[in-house]
Structures are given as structure tokens and as C-alpha cells.
Design a protein around this nucleic acid. Structure first.
Lengths: 140, 140
DNA sequence: CTTTGATTATTAGCTGGCTAATGGTAGATT
DNA sequence: AATCTACCATTAGCCAGCTAATAATCAAAG
């Protein structure tokens, strides 16, 4: 059996390589890889609780908690008490956190172009559809 | 701009979800995720040096060093001095490390089937080709 | 030969994923 | 009202990736 011809193997290898590129992209605007995805959720909907972020990102609560520590320290977000439930905290973007979006958009385009430079427009479309289908499966 | 329609975004999300499945697969045979890929290289060619493993896996030397610590402790590999160069060590599979291959092959099939359950045979082929092309790009 | 530079393994410490365990709060049941 | 259960944030500690820095060794240049 050849492991390296399986989707699982290829996916794992591509992941590691692509993550390195993503980290470099994030570093250009003073962020780390994981912080990007938390900010993306806040750009969609500001003021989420940590448990909401964990749910939307499909990661564990301590992971969100740790990433938020960096974002707080970097002054990208603030943490407020949630009025209706003393257990929760709400996370809000600072102006720096809001401004980061435009910066990331530019860098993200560059990352995307580099990633897909070997693919035709049709292939990119097909790949997006296939990855979307994979995502549905692995998120269960 | 919508981040979540980009290849980079989809790839990152699929990676996290798939990695969780991969970790569970590894755990079934007493291994961790990263250890699997080191063993795969040794199954191809036993007795490699750490720097060779790092090169083939395309990861940093300290990563290999740390993973080998676990494999040594789990008695999957042994470490020997390299005769021709006192700086290097050679890594050899134990019988347990050799036997792990058959165990992983069975579990890997299950992982692969679960991962691709929503895809047709043709789609699997296309995805493999596209991932291979992506791999060539992200490994540069 | 000696010295300089490159290579190998290793350690320390960072991010980001995880599980397990705690403390505090909310809600439901009694 | 009291208790019990569920939920939220947090901490500690694990694995796997990374960079930077060190010690040891090899190789090559002088």
C-alpha cells in the first residue's frame, strides 16, 4: 500500500506547506496564523462570546482563549463582561482590529495567487468545490 | 472580499478538521499524528539520519528531534551513531516499528474512506491531481 | 597545521491545536 | 429555597510545527 497516493497523505503534506506560507502572510501585518481566523469571525460579527468563536471556528475553547490572549496583548480586540450572563465575556474589535482587515485582504490576495499559480481558473473552481465537500465531511 | 471562498481559507479549515481525524487514526495504534509521517519515511528507507528525515518530511530539524523522542520512548525506533560522521545519528526501526506499518495500513484505509465518502472515484482522482500540483507549489 | 566555515543534533521558547480538571454562574428540578 | 445539572472561561500540560542559539564535528582554505 502506498500511503503517499492517498488524499489523507496529500492533504496533510499540503497543509504543512501552506501553513508556513500563511504564517508569513500573517506576520507581514503583525499577526500570527491562528489570530487571523478569529479576526475573520469578528469581522463577520463583532461582540461574540468565546464559546461562539469556538463553535464557529470549530476549535476547542482553550484554543480560542489562548489566541485571544495574543490579540488582546496586540490591541486588536478588547474583552467585556456579557451583561446577561456573568459566565461569558464578549470580544470586540478595536480600531486596530478593524483596520487589520484591509491590510489582510491585500496580503491574502497575494497568498492566494501564489498558492494557485499552477492552476487554471477552471481547476481553481473545481478545487474549491471539492474542498468544500471535504470540509462538510471533516467537520462532522 | 470574502476570505471564506478562497482556496487558502478552505485548505486551512479542511486541514484542522482532517488533522483531528488523523490523530484519532494514529491513536488507535498507539501513535501520535506526527510520528506517523516519520515512520512512513523509515518504512521507505531505514537507517536515515535526522537531517535526512527533516529534508524528506520538509520540516525543521527540532521537529524531527522531538518526534523521535516519542518514537524512541515508545520503542518504535532506535538511535545509533553514524560510523562515518560523529555529528550524525542513524534512526532504525525496531520490530515494533516495522509491525506498525500493517496496523496503520488498515486504519489508513478507514480514514481514507471516511474522508472521501462524499466524492466519486473520478472526483477523488481529480482531487489527488490538484493536491499534487498544490504540493509542488507550497513545498518550494 | 591551524583556522575558518559549514553541518548535525540538541535545547529553549514561541504559536496553535488538543484533553482534563476547576471555579463560577445559570437554570431546572424538586 | 435548595440542590443538581449544565455551561462558560480558564489553567495546566500534552503534541507538532517554528526560530534562534550552542556544542561538537567535519571539511576546506590558508
Amino acid at each position: 500500500m502506498k500511503f503517499d497516493e492517498s488524499i489523507s497523505y496529500l492533504l496533510a503534506k499540503v497543509s504543512v506547506g501552506h501553513r508556513k506560507m500563511l504564517e508569513k502572510t500573517a506576520a507581514k501585518i503583525g499577526l500570527h496564523g491562528g489570530q487571523i481566523f478569529v479576526l475573520m469571525e469578528l469581522w463577520k460579527k463583532d461582540g461574540l462570546r468565546q464559546v461562539d468563536l469556538a463553535g464557529r471556528l470549530d476549535v476547542a475553547a482553550p484554543t480560542v482563549n489562548k489566541i485571544l490572549g495574543g490579540l488582546l496583548e496586540g490591541d486588536f480586540v478588547t474583552r467585556s463582561k456579557y451583561e446577561d450572563d456573568a459566565r461569558s465575556t464578549r470580544i470586540f474589535l478595536t480600531s486596530k482590529g478593524i483596520d487589520a482587515r484591509a491590510l489582510l485582504e491585500a496580503e491574502w490576495d497575494t497568498l492566494e495567487e501564489y498558492t494557485t499559480i499552477n492552476l487554471t481558473d477552471t481547476e481553481i473552481l473545481v478545487l474549491k468545490q471539492l474542498l468544500t465537500r471535504l470540509l462538510e465531511q471533516v467537520e462532522i
